[in-house]
Amino acid sequence: MYRERLVNTDVRSDSARRLQQLLLDYHDFRIHKTGHRLLSSTFTVADWQAERLKSTHQDLYQHLGYHTGLEFLLTDLYAPASMTRRDDNIDRVFPKMVKWLPDHQLEMLAGLVELNLITQQLDLELAELLDERDIPASSVTGEHYCEVYRASQKLEQREKQVMLVADVGQQLDRYVRNRALGWLLSMSRAPAEMADLSDLHNFLHRGYLAFRKMDNVDLLISRLVTREQQVMDNILNGHPEPFVLPGDL
């Protein structure tokens, strides 16, 4: 991978330095996770949580105005098993990103990297806590999940994860409202393929299309954050049905 390139890139703004450090942290974590004996369990945990999110937010997930955006969040931003080439490519083009992209776009990318990193760190912790209790990840139930969730030593990170979803979603919404972006993404497809950056390009194009189709991103994010904060409170307080929320949430 491209750790040396990340380290040796000259960065001259706070946004670039933040992105550089997060990419280094994420790079090192990916290496650690790849060699971890519970690697496959982390993917199982991620799949379980993705299905739980779809169930909790079923009304939003089935809504024509939100479905594509939520699908992108769950399958692209929350799909660590299939994004190795994309992540490697981000490391590879980092020197060009900090040279050509404005700070607000570097901040958006930093938020995406931090969200992905925290999510995968939390997945690994849950897999380890399940393993300590001899609970196979493939057999996890809602009760098992809540048990290890309450045993987590990373509850502050879980709170931050929810807020990052809000921040990143709002930044992506502002980003895709730029009318020139769609044209630029279409025109850059062939050069991206020639530079072996098709995975990264496809990721950006899917995100652009997903968020362009949503009319009221602020409302979606507000509901997601409110509901997930309630789910967290329910789990920590031992609610018998933590994922069943009032109809007005």
Results as ranks from 00 to 15, higher is better:
242 P>K: 12
8 N>P: 00
29 F>W: 13
54 K>E: 15
53 L>G: 03
8 N>Y: 06
122 L>D: 14
142 G>M: 11
75 T>Q: 12
191 P>G: 13
51 E>W: 01
39 L>P: 05
196 D>I: 03
129 L>Q: 11
81 A>F: 07
8 N>T: 04
205 H>V: 08
33 K>A: 14
55 S>A: 15
124 L>C: 02
116 N>E: 15
97 M>Q: 08
58 Q>Y: 06
229 Q>S: 02
66 Y>A: 10
61 Y>L: 08
207 G>V: 02
101 L>V: 04
66 Y>W: 10
41 S>G: 08
193 E>D: 10
228 E>S: 08
136 P>M: 08
15 S>H: 05
65 G>D: 15
95 P>G: 10
127 A>T: 03
201 H>E: 07
1 M>P: 07
124 L>K: 05
134 D>Q: 11
14 D>L: 07
176 V>H: 01
170 Q>R: 04
224 L>W: 06
51 E>V: 00
156 E>V: 13
114 E>Q: 04
4 E>Y: 03
118 I>K: 04
147 E>W: 03
89 N>T: 06
96 K>H: 08
178 N>H: 10
244 V>E: 15
218 D>C: 01
75 T>D: 14
99 K>V: 01
163 M>R: 11
171 Q>E: 11
92 R>Q: 09
171 Q>L: 09
197 L>F: 05
204 L>G: 03
206 R>P: 03
55 S>I: 05
238 G>R: 06
163 M>D: 15
81 A>E: 13
202 N>Y: 04
125 E>H: 04
89 N>W: 00
117 L>E: 09
76 D>M: 12
146 C>D: 14
141 T>V: 08
76 D>V: 02
26 Y>D: 12
31 I>S: 11
53 L>E: 12
95 P>Q: 12
96 K>L: 14
61 Y>P: 03
223 R>Y: 05
92 R>M: 12
218 D>R: 02
109 L>F: 03
145 Y>R: 05
72 F>K: 08
81 A>T: 01
43 F>N: 03
44 T>V: 15
179 R>N: 08
151 A>R: 10
189 R>H: 11
80 P>H: 07
156 E>G: 12
185 L>P: 08
